[in-house]
Write a protein that binds this DNA or RNA. Sequence first.
DNA 1: CCTCTATGTTTACAGTGTTTACTTTAACCG
DNA 2: CGGTTAAAGTAAACACTGTAAACATAGAGG
Lengths: 185, 185
Amino acid sequence: MSTSPAAYHHGNLRDALLAAGLQALEGPGGKAPSLRELARAVGVSPTAVYRHFPDKHALDKALAREGLKLLGNEQAVAAKEAGGGAAGFAATGRTYVRFALAHPALFRLMFTQGHPVGDGEAPDEARALLTANTQALASDPERAELLALQAWSIAHGIAMLMLDGRIPADDALIERMLDTKSVFP
Amino acid sequence: MSTSPAAYHHGNLRDALLAAGLQALEGPGGKAPSLRELARAVGVSPTAVYRHFPDKHALDKALAREGLKLLGNEQAVAAKEAGGGAAGFAATGRTYVRFALAHPALFRLMFTQGHPVGDGEAPDEARALLTANTQALASDPERAELLALQAWSIAHGIAMLMLDGRIPADDALIERMLDTKSVFP
DNA sequence: CCTCTATGTTTACAGTGTTTACTTTAACCG
DNA sequence: CGGTTAAAGTAAACACTGTAAACATAGAGG
């Protein structure tokens, strides 16, 4: 799933580009890399990239998917550590916002790729976890779906507004804003 | 406040640039214009822009402020038409999301300029309206501030997720998700 | 009227995404 | 094996971007 050490310069250019892209995006202070930057980082000519991605946007979409995987994993372990149930659900939300603050550039990229709603892609782990949680917590499944979208929206809104500096990126504030008793009683 | 017909080519280049920028951004299918595009649209050399803005980012920030004004106005009239109070508050939220869907590029620009939270700028009308509404609806003023941030976050989250195509941009869905009885009982 | 300052223009540079044409490398198969 | 073929890489070029430096031109004020 990443950077197999053998056959770097030849062989798996695609994976190498994604790895270099993630490294550039990760962490606070991460930046969205240019296509040429990534080619340089991997030691290849800019046009070589086009053998593996039709254009820059496709590369970005692939990086976004990679980011979604990371987020899903972090959420899954956080939910498990919290013991599942309502506590796990809450942990999921906190982790979402913290992930955004920890990897601003990556998080922005993940949600700026124009992901048409009806495309046949399988739902990412984060999304699957969300619906599973709400289905377990709500009786009515339709109401559960609405709850899922609302929970997603408030977490996403908090994350975005904090990233943009519209709301102080305070950890205690995250806690209060996401308090399930207050928002979803 | 816009495009005074006299003295176009000489005089108010700054306003002309902002007007051209807004026109490019407005509407669905709007796009973030390049500095050179705007210069062309106004009939001026690219570097002339630098007499009025230190760099592209400053221009974008000015456009973002312009967009916030537009949003604030729309929200104000919507709240007034709904008769104020709780109904007005709800109208404010709906208008927020609808504005985002009606002007995707502008909305994105408005919230991607890195607006450091502590800077001395006066709060925009949208923000002022928000706190006024929650102060009126909640007894405890501290609880009102939290409610304001939560309401903002959920509206912002819905808007962003719909813009990114993660959630269907359905008007009825907006209504259900923002239903105050369901979210803030 | 003459000067000075605000506001433009020209030219140039480094960087970007992308196309086209060319070269190498590896794999396949008779 | 050995030769052909397709995959994967390179080089050069194009149109575009934001920006800097040096120069030109009003228009206003003393």
